[in-house]
Structures are given as structure tokens and as C-alpha cells.
Simulated assay, not measured.
Amino acid sequence: MAAIWNGWRLTDIDQAKQAVRERAWRRLIDGGGAPADSYGKIPGFYGTPATAERLAGLDEWQQATRIKADPDRAQLPTRTRALEDGRLLYTAVPRMAGLEPFFLLDPETLTVPAGEAAEKKGAAQVARRIGVEAMRPIDTVVCGSVAVNRSGARIGKGAGYSDLEVALLVEAGLVTASTVIVAPVHALQVLEDEIPETEHDFSVDYIVTPDEVIRCTNRRRPPGLVWDDLTAEEIAAIPVLAAQQRAR
């Protein structure tokens, strides 16, 4: 018998999530909140600089010293702001390739402007690649999202890397109860829909749009890596997961 989550059969959750994504992309693009080529991606929505500025006004941001931000285009102003504000910045290597799946950008040692270092290409050229064991506890996680709701449930584009990164960092004790997770999005990405969640999903503490900050109270964190949710192919494709599985 299939397991049940809040009325959903778990075998149907992927389809339910994809339906939410489809509605969010159409609503955002048709509403003029992002370019048409945002479909199928973490949207590079209009207003990302204003969103980064609003995020930087949060007390939690001002108190943070170490920030982990997703490498998508929508978070570029936030990654740039983190470096300009003197924060250590972690961002994932594309597809979590290799046993050192994160980049570390230290504003004190940058040899290029912050905006250049924060770009995907710039990070690949100037950042230091590190493994989880070389990282320090993270104060703020900035995650790219396709859709969120006001309870804090969020959904990405379906590749699953953001969830895996957070789960890996939870497993290592680097994302803890004191870590704040933020979703910068366009207002059109904030849906009233229920967003299905499984054990490996995380929720966000704040939604930040160009115009407002929404505090979410339904905090949800994964217990770490949920091995039963990972296929053999997924584990084999991500070296750090394959290594951890061998060590179990």
C-alpha cells in the first residue's frame, strides 16, 4: 500500500509538485514577473536587486557571518551583496560534482570585484573548492525557488540539488536549528496552493520579494540525508553521496 502524506499518495507527489511548478511558471511569466525563457528554470525574476536589498535589511542577515546561496541567476544580486557585506559565501559546484561539492568565496581574499566573483563563471575561476568537512556552520541559507506559500513550503525546479545540499549540511551539523533559510522570489511566485512536502524537503523561514518580507512559521527541516528517497543512479551521480554511502 502506498504511504499517505496529508491526503496525497507518495507515489503521486512528484506529479503534484510538477503541477504546482507549471502553475507558478505560467502565472509568473504571463503576469510579467519574469522573462519567457524562465519556464523550466529557477526564474530570474524582475526585481532581484530590490529583493537582495530587502533581504540585507533583515536582522538575521546583518548578524550573519557565513551564508550559503544557490548558484542560480536569481540569487546573483544576493551573492554579490553577501561578498560586499564581508560575509563568507558558500555556493554549490554545478551538479555537486566531485568530492568537494562547494565553492568558498572569501571577500578578504578576492582578486576580482564581488559581482564578478559571484557569477557562476567567476566563482569557478576564483573560488576555492571545498568538501563538507572544511566548511563552518552556516547562519543563512538562500535558496532558489519556483514557488512558495506563506506557510514556508517551497518547491524548486525538480532537480533536487537544493534539497540534497541542505540535507548534506544538516547531516554534517552545519545547518542547524539556528540557521535561517530564505527564499527570494517575485510576489507572483507566492501561491495560495498547498505544496506537497516529503521527509527530505525543507521549508523556509522568510520569503522575500521586491516589496515585502513574509515571516513563515511552519518550520520544517530534513533529518539529514534520506537514503530511502535516493535512487542508486542519483547516488552514483553525486560523488560525495556515493562516498558517504560506502562509509555507512
Rank of each mutant, 00 (worst) to 15 (best):
W61A: 06
Q62S: 11
Q62P: 08
Q62I: 10
Q62G: 13
Q62M: 11
Q63N: 12
Q63P: 10
T65E: 11
T65H: 09
T65C: 14
R66I: 09
R66L: 12
I67L: 02
D70N: 11
D70Q: 13
P71T: 11
P71F: 10
P71G: 13
D72S: 04
D72P: 03
R73Y: 11
Q75W: 14
Q75K: 09
Q75S: 12
Q75A: 11
L76S: 03
P77E: 08
T78K: 08
T78Q: 07
R79G: 01
R81T: 02
R81H: 03
R81F: 00
A82E: 01
E84V: 08
E84I: 10
G86P: 04
R87Q: 06
L88A: 07
L89W: 03
L89P: 01
T91G: 03
A92V: 11
V93L: 07
V93Q: 04
P94C: 04
R95M: 12
R95G: 12
R95H: 06
M96I: 04
M96A: 11
M96K: 08
G98P: 02
F102L: 11
F103A: 01
L105G: 01
L105Y: 01
D106M: 06
D106E: 07
D106A: 05
D106T: 03
P107K: 02
P107C: 12
P107E: 04
T109H: 15
T109A: 06
T109Q: 10
T109I: 04
T111P: 12
P113F: 02
P113R: 04
A114D: 07
G115H: 07
E116W: 07
A117S: 03
A118K: 00
A118P: 01
A118E: 01
A118F: 00
E119Y: 15
E119A: 13
K120Y: 15
G122A: 13
A123I: 00
A124M: 13
A124G: 12
A124L: 12
Q125G: 05
Q125I: 11
V126A: 06
V126N: 04
V126G: 03
